[in-house]
Design a protein around this nucleic acid. Structure first.
Lengths: 197, 197
DNA sequence: CTTGATTGATTGATCAATCAATAAAAATTT
DNA sequence: AAATTTTTATTGATTGATCAATCAATCAAG
């Protein structure tokens, strides 16, 4: 059975297993053995391919970030007007794949991990900057620059906050009402800025 | 030195030490020994008084919640108008004691812990409900009920999101600009609702 | 002489990481 | 093409560190 060229396959399987395991537990307090078992291999193999737990975690985060980036890119491609671009950025964050409970729980765990890990902080900063600049760019074509930046900041914070609330499944807002809340904020602000400009 | 009636004193010292230790580390991955050492006692004493690590953590959360409640109550007392009440709720969340980096980091860690602990989830739900109802009540005197609830939801989410961003000290918003952003959201929404009502 | 306060030492469990060993492909040599 | 050597894949077992939790013992009031 052992063949050559297993490395990329096994790495991918381990990363997928890590997302599932971390998402279900809602915490990075998962053992390498648990992740490996979920992937159907031994813990030793996980160490063999990733070098250590920390690197497996980082690779997992990078994978989630790349997925988010892909979703964003394809959503932006089909958006032609500035308003559509803004709507696309908001919608992607609440799309089925991104807003799945396990994914949201994993993100929350990564936010806490960022307190300890410089590299994790760096990756999260990339995500925050990307969301902000995408929002600010679209909004900049609809209102003045200062207002655009302000709305982008408010909308970004609101999105993050809705994620937290979703992770706690409290008065957990559905994706559709979450989108509506953020969209309403943006349109209300745009209308007010336009009126007084 | 060993005298009678140490229990409440030691418990309080251990809780304070837990807040400092968890806040500095930005994670609940702190040992009972570390907390106890920070409090100047042995780890065995912490177990003696709290029964276990989990109970010490829960007592620490409850203490933070009570502090937030106290801050909120005193802020609401000096607010006479509905608008002042809304402003007070917002301001309390970004007051020096609540928005201190260690406090924010501790809250974030508790959010993740809530994934595992039913009791933690219950405590966080109490906080979320209290913030929401306080906001919704004040807003309800300024606009119609449905709009008040919507604004309270948006503002609550925005506050949570600003906390996360503050914990990552990214484009970390200062307390004053965070307050301004949320206040702006509320006033803009109120103006828009009033105009079309 | 009992009761509360306090601790050092110990136990037992959990895990990340390493290692030595096996097995099967691929590459190289006869 | 057969025999060998090398490389890659894979794991069970072990190690070493870390910690929560417990215990037995001490100390000092009341």
């Amino acid at each position: 059975m052992p063949k050559v060229g297993m490395e990329p396959l096994r790495k991918r399987e381990l990363i997928d297993a890590a997302i599932r395991t971390i998402g279900q537990r809602g915490s990075l307090d998962v053992t390498v053995a648990e992740i490996a078992h979920e992937a159907g291999v031994s813990a030793a193999l996980a160490h063999h391919y990733f070098g250590g737990k920390e690197q497996l975690i980082l690779a997992t985060m990078q994978h989630l970030l790349k997925e988010l980036g892909n979703d964003l890119r394809s959503a932006l491609q089909s958006a032609t007007t500035p308003a559509a671009r803004v709507a696309a950025v908001i919608a992607v964050n609440f799309s089925a794949s991104q807003f799945a409970p396990e994914t949201v729980a994993a993100w929350l765990a990564f936010y806490v991990h960022a307190q300890k890990s410089e590299e994790t902080r760096r990756l999260l900063r990339i995500y925050a900057r990307r969301t902000h600049s995408n929002l600010a760019f679209g909004l900049g074509q609809l209102t003045d620059r200062a207002t655009a930046i302000q709305i982008a900041e408010g909308a970004g914070a609101m999105i993050d906050g809705l994620y937290i609330r979703h992770a706690l499944r409290n008065g957990a807002p559905e994706a559709s009402s979450a989108i509506a809340l953020v969209e309403d904020y943006v349109t209300t602000k745009l209308a007010a800025a336009g009126a007084t400009q």
